Simulated assay, not measured.
Amino acid sequence: MKPGYVYILTNKNNTTLYVGVTVNLGERIQQHKNKHDKKSFTARYNVDKLVYYEAFQEIGDAIAREKQIKAGNRAKKIALIEKKNPDWEDLT
């Protein structure tokens, strides 16, 4: 199987969060930054700042982790981000 990544994006004011999963993190983040799909959630809300990611050896594990993160509330997502990236810097 392919490796995978789960990631969290936000907007410039850190007010909107988006959780996603991909097999190619660099390419996927560029798609968000370039607003590849103009009607997507991330394009409409200018969500393109990478603030958190995890790498997995298999995409299935990344998908399972994505579901786990999405099931949590906003406070849990913020705690996850601030543990690894307390200043909310763009990791790209």
Rank of each mutant, 00 (worst) to 15 (best):
Met1Thr: 03
Met1Gly: 09
Lys2Glu: 05
Tyr5Phe: 12
Tyr5Ala: 07
Val6Gln: 05
Val6Glu: 04
Tyr7Gly: 14
Tyr7Leu: 13
Ile8Trp: 03
Leu9Asn: 13
Thr10Phe: 01
Thr10Glu: 04
Asn11His: 08
Asn11Lys: 12
Asn11Ala: 09
Asn14Phe: 04
Thr16Ala: 09
Thr16Glu: 11
Leu17Gly: 13
Leu17Ser: 12
Tyr18Asn: 14
Tyr18Asp: 12
Val19Arg: 07
Val19Glu: 07
Gly20Ser: 09
Val21Asp: 05
Val21Gln: 11
Val21Tyr: 02
Thr22Asn: 02
Thr22His: 01
Asn24Cys: 03
Asn24Ile: 03
Gly26Met: 01
Gly26Asn: 07
Arg28Gly: 00
Arg28Gln: 02
Arg28Tyr: 00
Ile29Gly: 02
Gln30Asn: 05
Gln31Ala: 01
Gln31Val: 00
Gln31Trp: 00
Gln31Thr: 01
His32Ile: 01
Lys33Gly: 01
Lys33Ser: 00
Asn34Trp: 00
Asp37Val: 04
Ala43Gly: 03
Arg44Leu: 06
Arg44Asn: 09
Tyr45Leu: 12
Asn46Val: 05
Asp48Cys: 11
Lys49Ser: 06
Lys49Tyr: 03
Leu50Gly: 13
Val51Leu: 07
Val51Phe: 03
Val51Thr: 10
Val51Met: 08
Tyr52Val: 10
Tyr52Gln: 13
Glu54Arg: 15
Glu54Ala: 14
Ala55Pro: 15
Phe56Glu: 15
Phe56Lys: 15
Gln57Tyr: 09
Glu58Leu: 11
Glu58Lys: 15
Glu58Gly: 10
Gly60Glu: 13
Gly60Asp: 14
Asp61Pro: 10
Asp61Gln: 12
Asp61Ser: 12
Asp61Lys: 10
Ala62Met: 07
Ala62Trp: 03
Ile63Leu: 10
Ile63Gly: 05
Ile63Val: 08
Arg65Gly: 06
Arg65Met: 06
Lys67His: 08
Gln68Ser: 12
Lys70Gly: 03
Ala71Asp: 06
Gly72Ile: 05
Asn73Pro: 09
Asn73Arg: 11
Arg74Gly: 03
Arg74Thr: 05
Leu80Gln: 07
Glu82Ser: 07
Lys83Glu: 14
Lys83Ser: 11
Lys84Phe: 06
Lys84Asn: 12
Asn85Thr: 14
Asp87Thr: 15
Trp88Leu: 09
Glu89Tyr: 02
Glu89His: 09
Asp90Tyr: 03
Leu91Phe: 04
Thr92Phe: 01
Thr92Gly: 06
